[in-house]
């Protein structure tokens, strides 16, 4: 899922304070799982902003709403009225949802309440960690199911750098060395010999470097 982290309230306040009718707009899928931008979090954020507005003696009306997913057309219809009411929509979705909402509102600004951080998993309650960068050319089959593109700080494809120490990455002792994990996993799979196979130079045109990506499924098009 996509993980996001709410921006500091001060930063959000600086964005919203010139507006009079603010809709805090939740997205109840990915960013609800990480408790950052679901409809419940949108409601809480709206309350915090009302308090802030009161403290700062700024006159504004703040409502909250939300839909299941801001990245799909089909969920928008029930909230048309609320979206049209606002002179600012503060979206608590990831960057995808913020832009998708903005595309529906030609003359109303849509601002992000979150920093979209990564695609990750729920490691433990309240702990989210990155697993994938969407590089567009998955190599997990050769790396024992552990991704060096997203989990090695140097995205090395052929083994650890000299900074791997006691299973940890040189940049931070809280970060596992991806290549230690890969080597351990290959050993557990009885495939350690595969480590010596050279991983070819990667085609990065499938990731960000190749420009905005698009996938078309003709069989699903209407």
């Amino acid at each position: 899922m996509i993980v996001g982290e709410q921006k500091p309230l001060e930063e959000i306040w600086e964005m919203v304070k010139p507006y009079k009718k603010v809709l805090v707009f939740g997205c109840n899928t990915c960013v609800a799982v990480c408790h950052s931008g679901g409809n419940k979090e949108a409601e809480i954020l709206a309350s915090l902003l009302r308090i802030k507005a009161k403290q700062e003696q700024v006159e504004m009306e703040i409502k909250n709403s939300g839909i299941e997913r801001q990245c799909e057309h089909e969920f928008y219809e029930p909230v048309t009225e609320e979206l049209n009411w606002a002179d600012l929509v503060l979206s608590t979705a990831c960057g995808v949802g913020v832009q998708f909402t903005a595309e529906k509102l030609a003359t109303t600004p849509v601002f992000p309440a979150l920093n979209t951080t990564f695609m990750g998993a729920v490691d433990a309650p309240g702990v989210f960690t990155e697993r994938c960068q969407g590089c567009g050319q998955c190599i997990l089959a050769i790396t024992g199911g552990i991704c060096p593109v997203s989990r090695c700080a140097k995205r090395l494809l052929n083994g650890p750098c000299g900074g791997s120490s006691n299973g940890k990455c040189e940049i931070n002792k809280d970060v596992d060395c991806a290549w230690q994990l890969i080597v351990d996993r290959l050993a557990a799979l009885g495939r350690l010999d595969d480590y010596e196979k050279l991983t070819p130079i990667k085609d990065w045109s499938n990731e960000r470097s190749g420009g905005p990506r698009k996938m078309v499924r003709e069989d699903l098009q209407q």
């Binding site: 052929n158 000299g162 900074g163 791997s164 120490s165 060395c177 290549w179 080597v183 010596e196 050279l198």
Partner: peptide, 18 residues
């Protein structure tokens, strides 16, 4: 001297192969 220990020699073998 770096970790993981078990690939210290294979890592060099890989560089030789490269």
């Amino acid at each position: 001297f770096a970790d993981p220990f078990e690939i210290r020699v294979p890592r060099l073998a890989k560089k030789v192969a490269a």
